[in-house]
Structure formats: structure tokens, C-alpha cells
């Protein structure tokens, strides 16, 4: 499959659409007052992110992003929202405190953004990124259980902590008089 004339421009346009989707989804998730819309923004952001992963030659990761984040996480969040609060009560109190939080959040986000981008652009990378494999089940399984086994185990630790936290919250709610 050889590239046809104009393929580069088309790819660039699709890349821009992916970036715009990610940013728009993130902004929507943050700025809207209706919580259900912010979940939709999160889903949109994940879809855009999946497109960016596809551009980074990792279609498996892109599809997993959609399967897990859009298909499972966002559905769970919406389900929780549905169970929790049917009507949105937007309270307009404590504006001064809101301003303080906003400024500190923006500052923190700026610092994190600067640090991550500086690290990404000029950091000394000890090993070159792994070449894009053939994305077969076998290759993914081998890399998960050999090269990246430590990260794989650490992720399971995160899940364990999440389960424990859920249990603690659920129990405390139940035993309270």
C-alpha cells in the first residue's frame, strides 16, 4: 500500500482533528457545570487520545483506550452519577475560595506541564523506545510478562489499592448510624 498524493496533508488534518478532539474533550470536562456533560467530555478526550496513540504506531493501545476508558470507565462513572444525583444543584457560594483554588490549580498545572514537556523534549532517555511490534497476541503477552513485568505488577497494585479504598468507603457508609 503506497501512499497516494495528498496523503501527508490528509494525515496532518486527521492529526489536527485528533489533537482538537482531545483538547476540546478536556476543556468540556473541566468547564461544564453539568456533571454528565463532563463525563462526555472525558469520553471525547479519550477518543481523541486513542487517535493520537494510533498516530504513534500503537493501534492496540488506541483500541484498548476506547475499550477500557470509553467503554468501561466512562460507563461506570455515568452509572455512578445516575445512582447518586438525579438533579444538578449548582451552588454559587464561596467565590473567593473558588478563585484561590483556581489560581493554585492553574499554577500547579503549569508547573506539571512545564516539567513534563521539558523532560520529554530534552531529557536524557536511557533506552530508545521499543520498536512497534507486530501487535499480535503473542508479542503483547511476551512483552507484558518479560520486559514490562514490573510495570504490569505495579498496575495490579494500583487496582488492589482501589479495591481496598472502595471497601473502606462502602463499609464506613454502612456502619454509620
Amino acid at each position: 500500500m503506497n501512499p497516494f498524493p495528498g496523503a501527508g496533508i490528509l494525515a496532518f488534518i486527521i492529526f489536527c482533528v485528533c489533537v482538537a478532539t482531545t483538547v476540546a474533550g478536556g476543556l468540556l470536562a473541566v468547564f461544564t457545570v453539568r456533571i454528565i456533560r463532563s463525563v462526555c467530555g472525558l469520553a471525547l478526550c479519550c477518543i481523541g487520545l486513542a487517535g493520537l496513540y494510533y498516530f504513534l504506531h500503537s493501534p492496540f493501545l488506541a483500541l484498548m483506550e476506547i475499550l477500557i476508558y470509553v467503554g468501561a470507565v466512562c460507563v461506570t462513572i455515568i452509572f455512578a452519577v445516575m445512582l447518586a444525583e438525579p438533579e444538578e444543584n449548582v451552588s454559587r457560594e464561596g467565590r473567593a475560595r473558588d478563585l484561590v483554588w483556581m489560581v493554585s490549580a492553574v499554577l500547579l498545572a503549569g508547573v506539571v506541564f512545564y516539567a513534563v514537556s521539558r523532560l520529554g523534549l530534552s531529557g536524557p532517555w536511557p533506552a530508545p523506545p521499543a520498536p512497534p511490534g507486530d501487535a499480535s497476541v503473542k508479542a503483547i503477552g511476551i512483552s507484558l510478562l518479560t520486559t514490562y513485568s514490573l510495570a504490569f505488577e505495579l498496575i495490579s497494585l494500583v487496582l488492589l489499592v482501589a479495591i481496598l479504598g472502595a471497601l473502606v468507603i462502602a463499609r464506613s457508609g454502612r456502619t454509620k448510624p
Binding site: 483500541l63 476506547i66 467503554g71 468501561a72 460507563v75
Partner: peptide, 14 residues
Amino acid sequence: VFAFGSINVMAIML
């Protein structure tokens, strides 16, 4: 197929 199939739930729910 399964990644995009999972969006279906979210659509009906929305």
C-alpha cells in the same frame, strides 16, 4: 470490534 461495540452502551444510556 469490541472496542467500538462498547460505545453502544454509553449511547443508549446517554
